[in-house]
């Protein structure tokens, strides 16, 4: 079985901990190594804060783009795509083509690359 671990935390505190863009705490490094060693690792990424998020939905055949993360609570996270494109424009474009954009909302969040120490 595959499981997704969704990491939540108070962003303002988490960001206060960041020293630079390459930072990965020794604890994370160790955790990643343990997962890899156990053959359980399938992928994982740090996300840029919600201030870099954009929400896309398609209504009346038009893509509606909103600055900011998905904030409502009536809808639930039902799946995800991780994509690699040159800029936010292509990411929004792909999000608006996703069938789920017709009835739900898609939050688009850039991956925040980390390098192991």
């Amino acid at each position: 079985m595959q499981f997704m671990l969704l990491i939540h935390g108070d962003e303002s505190q988490m960001n206060a901990l960041e020293t630079d863009d390459t930072g990965m705490s020794p604890d994370y490094h160790a955790f990643n190594q343990a997962l890899i060693k156990a053959g359980a690792m399938r992928g994982g990424e740090r996300l840029r804060p919600t201030s870099a998020a954009t929400t896309v939905r398609v209504r009346d055949k038009k893509a509606v783009v909103l600055a900011g993360p998905y904030a409502e609570t009536q809808e639930q996270l039902g799946g995800y795509y991780l994509i690699d494109v040159p800029s936010l424009d292509e990411a929004i474009d792909w999000a608006s083509k996703c069938p789920a954009a017709q009835f739900g909302s898609i939050e688009v969040r850039p991956i925040w690359p980390t390098r192991p120490q």
Partner: peptide
């Protein structure tokens, strides 16, 4: 750049 698309729906 890599982007995560999070799919929310009722």
């Amino acid at each position: 750049m890599q982007y995560l698309l999070m799919l929310y729906a009722d």
